[in-house]
């Protein structure tokens, strides 16, 4: 990404809305006989980048789906900026595990989908183009999604998620299917978008290194409850080779794997 693309996307959109606080209180979710979340409390302060890690099946994706309004809790409540989720759903955007682009719409039209209620507003094309430029794909605007690589599709999905300037971005392991290099590229893109737009990010991931690289705070979920909640006191940009980075990653991994290790 270059400076002009950044500037273009900044001037093309509406005035940057600051992040909104996300709060889930005592939420429960059961599927049949299995209780996935048992009265879990979760809070992401406005503008923060919170990563949620855990083994598969621990309930982290369920938590994200509840926060994003894709699913309703059996008990408890979710609020965004203090308002119930139902009234604030247009302020939150989801980036899914899969790109979920409409195969029959051009890359640009797919980004326009992200405008939500403003999809018919004048200047939508310019805003979508600016968002595409900010992920470095302005030259592919007219192409079909089928002609893009996996990483490029996920970049289009990121542009779609950000084009409406959401106050909250929920990310459900969006980089899990990408190769290692593309993944690091996407992490940098995501971080710069977050630094630029100031939205609240909630990232579910199974990759502890990814969580340490991106998040201000890491929440570890075990058997439907929060088992660990640690801050990441590392300056940005972060370097994976740094000793502190490795120590933190090691400690969280040890906790995840159930090894006896000192807590950070």
């Amino acid at each position: 990404m270059n400076a002009t693309a950044l500037a273009a996307s900044r001037s093309g959109g509406s005035p940057s809305a600051a992040g909104a606080e996300v709060e889930a209180r005592a939420i429960r979710r059961t599927f049949g006989d299995t209780t996935v979340l048992r009265g879990l409390d979760f809070r992401a302060p406005a503008g923060a980048f919170v990563a949620v890690v855990g083994r598969s099946g621990c309930g982290k994706s369920t938590l994200l789906r509840l926060i994003a309004g894709l699913d309703a809790p059996d008990g408890g409540s979710v609020t965004i900026a203090g308002r119930p989720l139902a009234d604030a759903s247009d302020q939150a955007r989801v980036m899914f595990q899969e790109p979920r682009l409409l195969p029959w719409a051009s890359v640009l039209a797919n980004v326009e989908v992200g405008l939500g209620a403003e999809r018919d507003a004048p200047g939508r094309r310019e805003r979508a183009l600016a968002a595409l430029a900010s992920v470095g794909l302005a030259d592919r605007a007219a192409d079909w999604p089928a002609t893009l690589s996996g990483g490029q599709r996920q970049r289009v999905a990121l542009a779609r998620a950000l084009v409406s300037r959401p106050r909250v971005l929920a990310l459900d392991e969006p980089l899990g299917a990408l190769d290692a290099l593309t993944r690091i590229e996407m992490q940098r893109l995501l971080e710069s978008a977050w630094l630029r737009d100031g939205f609240t990010a909630v990232l579910v991931t199974h990759d502890v290194a990814e969580a340490v690289a991106l998040a201000d705070r890491i929440v570890l979920i075990e058997r439907g409850a929060i088992a660990l909640d640690v801050g990441v006191p590392l300056a940005r940009p972060r370097h994976r080779g740094a000793a502190e980075f490795g120590r933190l990653e090691e400690a969280i991994l040890a906790r995840l794997l159930g090894d006896p290790a000192p807590e950070p």
């Binding site: 994003a68 759903s89 955007r93 989801v94 899914f96 979920r100 409409l102 989908v113 992200g114 939500g116």
Partner: peptide
Amino acid sequence: PQLIEMAKSYGMPRAALFRRV
């Protein structure tokens, strides 16, 4: 169904959901 879920979560009204998805 993933596309339908995406469209709904992106606030697509029913008519547009039918026409575009």
